[in-house]
Amino acid sequence: MLTVLGAYSWVNIRFLLEGAWVTILVSVCSIVLSYIFGVILGIVRYVKIKYLSAIVGFIIDIIRNLPLILIIFFTYFGLPHLGFKPDPIWASVIAWRSLKQRWLLKLFEQESRRFRLVKWKGPGPMA
């Protein structure tokens, strides 16, 4: 038990707090960006533009089925080969964003489908 308490010495606490700050920063950035991009892509998929929607849907399926760590490693180690070098935090934000937006998108899709159902089927029994 003493070792556990020892872990909370001032020096360690400072490191932990710094880590917590990065966690919060990454989370907030990712949530905001993923929400924006997720809604945009969700609308694109929902309105069924002829080829674009199918392509977007395909890309979404691909990214949704890849592990997050792979996407992060890809953005951090893979993308520099294409001449684009993000620092670690931004790499994870980009990766998180692209992953998260799929989930939001799914959610949005379901919601909009439900909305459509409610809108069109709702008046029937009520009228």
Partner: peptide, 28 residues
């Protein structure tokens, strides 16, 4: 294995693409 191969072959881009493909084989 992806990390091992990427650091061994120095082709991280194509390695991660390969491994992503294999994950897709499992999950898609």
């Amino acid at each position: 294995q992806a990390n091992v191969i990427a650091s061994d072959s120095l082709k991280s881009m194509s390695t991660y693409l390969c491994v992503g493909l294999l994950y897709l084989v499992l999950t898609l």
